[in-house]
Amino acid sequence: MISYSDNEMMAIAAGRLINDGDVVFAGTGVAMLAATAAKRIYAPRAVVFFETGGIDPSLDEIPMAVGDSRVMSGTSLNSGLIEAFSTVGHRKLHTIAFLGAAQVDRYGNLNTTSIGNYYKPGKRFSGSGGACDASALASGIIIFMQHEKRRFVEKLDYLTSVGWYKGGNSRQELGLKRGGAIAVVTNLGVLRFHKETKEMYLREFFPRASVDMVVENTGFPIDVSGAKKTLPPLPEELKVLREEVDPQRLICQSDMNAPPG
């Protein structure tokens, strides 16, 4: 049996959700790995771009941050933040944003700001960055999480980025005409959202995880009735990931997702 890290399984599971031709907005860490892997393996006509303004970089080396010079190299175009967000929200494009967070709730809303009292928090994180913007403007977001009870919560300490808001049609009623949370990819599996209620449910659990592990590590009741075991990473997927996407093993090697904080 081939061994692989959690980050590799997560990047591959998320990459499988990308369709050819999608325009993919990548954040940092495993999100960047997934975006790059998606293009190299599943969706060669997908375009990866960054909130800092780099469109379709060659990504010969994996960037460590969205401000890394590697997102400016071999691009079709270098621009700035305003141009990048005009791409994220463009009505002509199907844009998918990869985001990480410290907390997620059952409707795919995210917290990347702080834990505890906002004004004097127990733990402060980096803040929204482009996450609030991408979740407001993109056609959909895919969220990366470490699957822990304290991260899958009934109520966020701070709602930085809107997913399905309060479920049902509430996102649309806010004035956000498109978008919403497509999936949450964790170290245990892939969670999706019910079509009508917009509540999170377990769609797939990873080969090394189980339905029980997901239930135990989720801080709200979760529907697991239709969950199936994920296909493990294929040798050719791992080969591309390790040899082409992250040859320096900067992200692949780690078993820890890199959430803010």
């Binding site: 940092t28 941050a65 969205v66 733990k123 402060r124 980096s126 803040g127 959430p259």
Partner: peptide, 24 residues
């Protein structure tokens, strides 16, 4: 007034920023 304070993998949240906010 800020949107984000981080240094990628070197400091997912900038350290002195984090301390200053947490300590009010």
């Amino acid at each position: 007034e800020i949107a984000y304070s981080g240094n990628g993998r070197f400091a997912p949240t900038c350290v002195r920023f984090k301390k200053a906010i947490e300590e009010g």
